[in-house]
Design a protein around this nucleic acid. Sequence first.
DNA 1: CTGAAAGCGCTAACAT
DNA 2: ATGTTAGCGCTTTCAG
Lengths: 350, 350
Amino acid sequence: MDERENLIPRIRIRKRSVSIQDVADRAAVSIATVSRAVNKPHLVAAETATRVQHAIEELGYRPNRFAQGLMTQRSGLLGMALPDLRGEFDFEILRSADAEARRLGYQILVSALPPHGSPSSASALAGAFGLVEGVALMALESDNRVPPQLSDLRLPIVGVGVSFDGATDVLLVNHASGARAATIHLLSTTMPENCFYLGGPPHLVDSRERADAFSACLSAAGSPPRPDQVICNECSMAWGEHWANEVLPSRRDRTTAVLAATDQIAYGVVRTAQGLGMSIPEQVRIVGCDGSSLASIIRPTLSTVRVPRDELGRLAIRTLVARIEEPETPPLRVVLDTDLTVRESSALIA
Amino acid sequence: MDERENLIPRIRIRKRSVSIQDVADRAAVSIATVSRAVNKPHLVAAETATRVQHAIEELGYRPNRFAQGLMTQRSGLLGMALPDLRGEFDFEILRSADAEARRLGYQILVSALPPHGSPSSASALAGAFGLVEGVALMALESDNRVPPQLSDLRLPIVGVGVSFDGATDVLLVNHASGARAATIHLLSTTMPENCFYLGGPPHLVDSRERADAFSACLSAAGSPPRPDQVICNECSMAWGEHWANEVLPSRRDRTTAVLAATDQIAYGVVRTAQGLGMSIPEQVRIVGCDGSSLASIIRPTLSTVRVPRDELGRLAIRTLVARIEEPETPPLRVVLDTDLTVRESSALIA
DNA sequence: CTGAAAGCGCTAACAT
DNA sequence: ATGTTAGCGCTTTCAG
């Protein structure tokens, strides 16, 4: 090829996007005035403001968020770390959080929380959240400190679900209130000795708190639970099925009442009971927990302890934003109650 | 109060976070060397590198992402706009997208897409995505241009679900393939005249494509569908129930086969059929669409056309990142097939 | 009310 | 291999 071709300057591909200077030139003002016209319109003459506005529109100017952030240290970004982004639970929280964030002029950066103490957890989180102004950190396990890499960022952090060590504010769920309501509901027509609690893994706070509430209710009714009445295992349909297969066949002669730590477990019991030809709620009464959408679809419809997920998400964001915009407010610690929705699976027989 | 108190300088609250200069001072090198030690370690002497590393750790230095971005125009952020953040569908995509993004060193900014053409849509999206390097835009409605405010950003955009006008790359779902498989499955033991398609709103591409595939299959079987065999309405359990109540009672003498556009609709049919005392799959055979998690839980388990949601999310991110890092690649247009999972609700009777 | 100028913290030429 | 320096695009005193 002709060597001279190399002398022809390469066309600049990178089209510099329009900057504040371009707008200033176009409107025949200084960049300072453009900045003011955009951010503090009241400091600028009306006539100037419109001229700038026109220039902005004609040029399609968009402030560079990096440059803005460099000065203001603000990004309008909120981090949201969820334990696993699995299941409806996390999702509904995220959904309401997103809606609330938008409403307040923020945007949400999601991230599944890497497994506890994994090495990647460290840099991952910190890197991920390098631009956010605050973080909502969720968890359901009990042992919780804010990961050091996160607290190093010195950001406002609102802990959701469990009491985080190092969080600025905390949003908790009173799992006991709903579990208590459910247990009392069951006890209203079923003898304490015939009530069972099927829990999930004991390190999950919700499962544990519900177990405690259940036990307390039985004790209050004058019949502290036998060991076989409160069993913690896992959150799966299989566990519900397994338990039901082991226990229900020998109990056809009397009503059995079950409080399951999740709707999934409850479904397992429902299915097995149906398979055994036992009637619900006459022979087996079942209450789940979580208020999953399945609860009202499945037949029989499932009584369930509702966790206010939408409120949890909304409040998490609202708290976080309040903290960001008003840092000196005293730390907030809110506990949201859970409540019982009675449906066919545990209905009282007249 | 003593006036002299005012002479005492206010303590600077705002603790300037440690900057690259602080590290440079501590390590007795220039800021350029610190920058290199961090970003291009191979350009720096091993001994210097470790000294810098130590300084960084001792000071707890974290590069300022705004300043970095100002130079590099990179944020490591990917925007993900979903039509409504409702339902499992969006969520599973988000989940797999998040996982893939992390894997590639990016982070996801979520945003429910404001309703088509709403005024807020404009500024909202653009503002929200001011920091992202690319956007994955999902939709299920047919008429789709990329919102102008978004295309003004001149970012790589991958359209997911439908063919976006203005998207750089496109990821589509072949809803026909699964619907065809389902229809053929139904036709294998049920006469074409006894097959029905219950659709959702006609502006949803999935619903429409499935309707077309269904019709085509019936035609191919020599029996083009009557108008009452292909009905589009809405995606709700209520619609399934309504249809079943209207149609099924008069069809007890022969098998009825139903392809429903969503699992929700299918559940409605299942419930009503059960309520009418009709047996599934003997008298009524049902196939849903979407592969929702409920499908394998409910009894009878529901045959369903599976949409590869996890792959959709993963591929969306992978495509987007490829485009960001290699802008000159020819536009990609991928179509993912759907397939049929046969379960109890439509099982062939031996 | 507006303009000039000083950075914000960093990367990337360009020197050395 | 390292240092010097010029910005990136914006906000914000500080003067006029």
